[in-house]
Amino acid sequence: MSPEPIPSAVPSAESPEPKARPVAVPVWLIVLLFLLLYGGMVYFDRCSGWFADQVYTPYQSVQELEAMQPASGPPSLAQLGLLVYNKPTCVACHQANGKGLPGQFPPLVQSHWILEPEPGRIIRIVLDGLSGPLEVEGQNFNGAMVPWRDVLTDEEIAAVLTYVRQNAEWGNNAPSVKPERVKDVREKTKQHKQSWTPDELLKVSPAD
């Protein structure tokens, strides 16, 4: 079948190529454009953080972000104690589980030295160290513990001793140690320049 001719076969029958009239843009459209631009700038000013690469929604400025940082406020005594224990002040020898190493480092778990109601003796141990034959819960040790008088503050010593004495996982439950008590002992033992021996310590009353 022969295909039917379509109008464009006759050039004048196809509609001419389009033209556009030079009619001006309505003014209200331009006004709307500027209003939207203004609104956009206000929104950008408020919410964008002005190109700061640290500001993510919902924060709107670096100042707000800084204000929202968690406070590095004073840690509780127990929190500080954990930190001091792991500095690795104590954990290197007495281990994270507080059990020490048999023959080398005495355990702190259920140790009668640690659990005495008054902390006078253990404060002295921490301040000036301990050396000589020592018996802890049936185990014998003959090593040396270094002094921490010049390394730890009163608060840190009180914190770590509190942590050790109150560590529920180790089953320890003794009263906490106050920084004032440590300060007291520190003053009293100012003249004691070498490390304690267990015999010497046993002569000192824990309440001292």
């Binding site: 500095k87 290197a92 020898c93 080398q104 480092f105 090593g143 040396a144 513990m145 270094v146």
Partner: peptide
């Protein structure tokens, strides 16, 4: 920190 070695 190097572990404190027990000294006699």
């Amino acid at each position: 920190v190097p572990a404190q070695t027990p000294a006699k």
